[in-house]
């Protein structure tokens, strides 16, 4: 999407979770197609949002990029070079993560100082004046006066303050990428914007590349430069945030937007589709959205749609945007993407 090399890039990431069917010792295991062939790029000084319903695979993508879990297929590139195997400390220094639940992401038995001190110690960043660095970190996430926070326990802070501490912890190692998995969804509405503004601030001031995972498309529009929409483990649309929300190209994005609360709406919203996301144990054939899609065509049931550029930096994976002749042709098996697809299904 952008000319410069992205700071962090996931290419064709695929992750299946093998789960037991039933509790028996000898139960069959079946794959949950949590993430299928997703490519995503994070640029410096940009917030990229991943939006989708529960179970769409957003967290899995975030964890793949943070290399907490390993992809079955595909690769993660840091500055255009394959990320080192495993999760060495050098990677931890570049890529940090903020979790959804600020009540769970801080250890209740340790003081705030401990949470900020550990990353400094692990990465030998304190140089003897940890207190000063900690104070600085707390100030950067707008927790002032910093001194009053260091010796508090997590339960003595409010949700928003905790999430700021979690962000400060991530910032402690001076990372270049921050992966934030639903950082505000557990917070009170009135303090969400504060945390989002903080993230925007960090992007601007510290040139961070930020991945913002959320199910709230309005907040993604507010914060992000680019929005990526995921459905049932696949990427269905990606575009600059305003053009995505103003001109959604994929029927699923349209559905999401029609369902989102929007008091400014002039008319009663009309839901552009119904139903619930499919089981990822046996995802639908072809386009995974076809059972819910109001525009579904024959081809949708049979073949996964290719990703099509529908505007500047705007791509959508939907047969509607493939021009009819080509659609026809691909049904006859003439399109290059198809052989790839076949190969994938064989595996």
């Amino acid at each position: 999407m952008s000319e410069a090399t992205p700071v962090l890039e996931g290419r064709n990431l695929t992750k299946y979770f093998w789960v037991r069917q039933g509790r028996s010792l000898f139960a069959r295991r079946a794959p949950v197609h949590a993430v299928d062939n997703v490519s995503i790029q994070l640029d410096a000084k940009k917030v990229t949002a991943v939006v989708g319903e529960s179970g769409a695979g957003k967290t899995t993508v975030a964890r793949l990029l943070a290399r907490i879990i390993r992809p079955d297929q595909g690769s993660v590139l840091l500055d255009g070079r394959p990320a080192p195997a495993g999760r060495p400390r050098s990677y931890a220094r570049q890529v940090q993560m903020v979790f959804q639940d600020p009540f769970a992401s801080l250890n209740p038995v340790h003081r705030i100082r401990h949470h900020l001190e550990r990353p400094l110690k692990i990465h030998h960043l304190a140089n003897g004046n940890a207190d000063a660095v900690i104070g600085d970190l707390l100030r950067r996430v707008a927790l002032k006066p910093a001194e009053s926070f260091t010796s508090k326990f997590p339960h003595e802070l409010s949700g928003g303050q905790r999430q700021r501490v979690a962000i400060a912890r991530a910032l402690a190692v001076k990372p270049r990428v921050l992966i934030a998995d639903e950082p505000v969804s557990m917070l009170d509405v009135s303090i969400r914007l504060g945390v989002l503004n903080l993230l925007a601030d960090l992007r601007d001031r510290e040139n961070l590349a930020i991945l913002y995972v959320t199910h709230d498309i309005a907040s993604a529009r507010y914060l992000a430069d680019t929005i990526v929409v995921m459905y049932a483990g696949q990427l269905v649309e990606a575009a600059p945030s305003v053009s995505l929300t103003d001109n959604p190209a994929h029927p699923y994005t349209q559905l999401l937007l029609s369902a989102a609360p929007d008091p400014d709406r002039a008319q009663q919203p009309v839901l552009a589709g119904r139903g619930a996301p499919p089981s990822l144990l046996a995802p639908p054939s072809g386009c995974r959205f076809h059972p819910r899609c109001p525009y579904a065509m024959d081809v949708c049931k049979r073949k996964a749609p290719p990703s099509i550029a529908v505007g500047t930096d705007h791509i959508a994976a939907c047969w509607l945007h493939v021009d009819p002749a080509e659609r026809q042709a691909s049904e006859n098996g003439l399109v290059a993407s198809e052989s790839l697809e076949k190969e994938r299904q064989k595996r």
Binding site: G159, G160, D188, V189, I191, N197, Y222, S241, A260
Partner: peptide, 24 residues
């Protein structure tokens, strides 16, 4: 007023919003 400005709009130009300072 503050609460209403905690919900970013779905349309129009993006403008910085403040939310409500402090916490409940």
């Amino acid at each position: 007023h503050g609460l209403l400005h905690c919900f970013p709009p779905m349309h129009g130009k993006r403008v910085p919003m403040e939310g409500i300072p402090g916490s409940p």
